[in-house]
């Protein structure tokens, strides 16, 4: 299996699917000549031409909205929203139009589109280019929400997203783009709603998403030296959410810490904690803890930004608390 970066794996998913289905097109700000803000779509314009790789105006409503219209008329758009923070100017087209059409129309519409977007802090991009917003999308019926943590998952989940007949929000944490990992060539899919246990353990279940999966794996390595065994569960898709895998893990470990980069208040972890409380409360030996960002915009200054992002040490402290 060749090694690919996370970004290359996402590009490879585009290539594999665009070669298979001529109705797939890419559109977004700087996705063509420039190759994408993070280089994800570099080379695709040369390979597939302007008809299928469209540089757009800097108009997020029109990027999302034309995709919704084109999808309902038979195409399969894969659009790039440069930063997830920009959804603020395009949200109506995503949730009021794409997300609700099928239901409002009594089941007859089909909106097969993917909105890829970069999220997350860590590059000094400040408040309007750094947030994680997965809980926002999870709250909107009609959308599916995907958040990969490895190159392998990114490619398989994106191919699944492109083949899905629903609007899919595909969240790419920007600190992952350069990460390398083994990625099979050719097409393969990872079904939505199947969490992946990234590390097996017996003492504490850690549910983590995107780059926080790697923070959790780092903590697990360190705690192993202290004789504490973490099980790291990566939901991979937040809607649909694989509650079963999480419940089963908690039933084995009896302890749960949730780790994500969004703000803690009303973040995705709140939903996961609530579901575990409803379905597996009797198995818990300690309160559920969440390690997540504080309730403030993402700051710019490097020490502030570092303090904002949940750390390995914060997770280790939380684990020790539930073990106490």
């Amino acid at each position: 299996m060749p090694d690919m970066t996370f970004a290359e794996a996402i590009k490879d998913a585009h290539v594999v699917e665009m070669e298979r289905d001529p109705n797939i097109y890419i559109a977004g700000e700087d996705v063509g000549v420039f190759g994408g803000c993070f280089g994800v779509t570099a080379g695709l314009l040369d390979q597939f031409g302007e008809k299928r790789v469209k540089d757009t105006t800097i108009t997020e409503s029109a990027i999302v909205g034309t995709a919704v219209g084109a999808a309902s008329a038979g195409l399969r758009p894969v659009i790039e929203l440069m930063f997830v923070d920009f959804i603020g100017v395009a949200l109506d087209q995503l949730y009021n139009q794409a997300g609700k059409m099928k239901y409002m129309f009594g089941g007859k519409a089909k909106i097969p589109m993917v909105m890829r977007t970069a999220c997350g802090a860590g590059i000094g991009a400040a408040a309007q280019h750094s947030q994680c917003l997965e809980a926002l999308f999870m709250h909107l019926p009609g959308l599916k929400v995907v958040m990969p943590s490895t190159p392998y998952d990114a490619k398989g989940l994106l191919i699944e997203a492109i083949r899905d007949d629903n609007p899919v929000v595909f969240l790419e944490h920007k600190m992952l783009y350069a990460m390398e990992g083994e990625v099979p060539s050719g097409a393969y899919t990872i079904p939505f709603g199947q969490a992946d246990i990234k590390r097996q353990g017996k003492d504490v279940t850690i549910v983590a998403t995107a780059n926080m999966v790697h923070t959790a794996l780092g903590a697990a390595e360190k705690l192993a030296a202290d004789g504490i065994s973490l099980e790291v569960v990566d939901p991979r898709t937040l809607y649909p959410l694989d509650g079963e895998t999480i419940f089963e893990s908690v039933k084995r470990t009896h302890r749960l810490v949730i780790l994500h980069e969004e703000v803690k208040f009303a973040g995705s972890g709140a939903e996961i904690a609530a579901q575990v409380a409803e379905e597996a409360f009797d198995y818990l030996d300690a309160p559920i803890l969440r390690v997540a960002a504080p309730f403030c915009p993402v700051p710019f200054s490097p020490p502030l930004e570092k303090a904002y992002i949940p750390s390995e040490q914060q997770l280790i402290d939380a684990v020790k608390k539930v073990m106490a």
């Binding site: 109705n23 097109y25 008809k51 409503s61 029109a62 999302v64 909205g65 034309t66 995709a67 919704v68 219209g69 084109a70 999808a71 309902s72 008329a73 038979g74 195409l75 087209q93 139009q97």
Partner: peptide, 12 residues
């Protein structure tokens, strides 16, 4: 935007 999108599909 939806109309422009449907028109894009026609053109495509």
């Amino acid at each position: 935007p939806l109309a422009s999108g449907a028109a894009l599909a026609c053109q495509y």
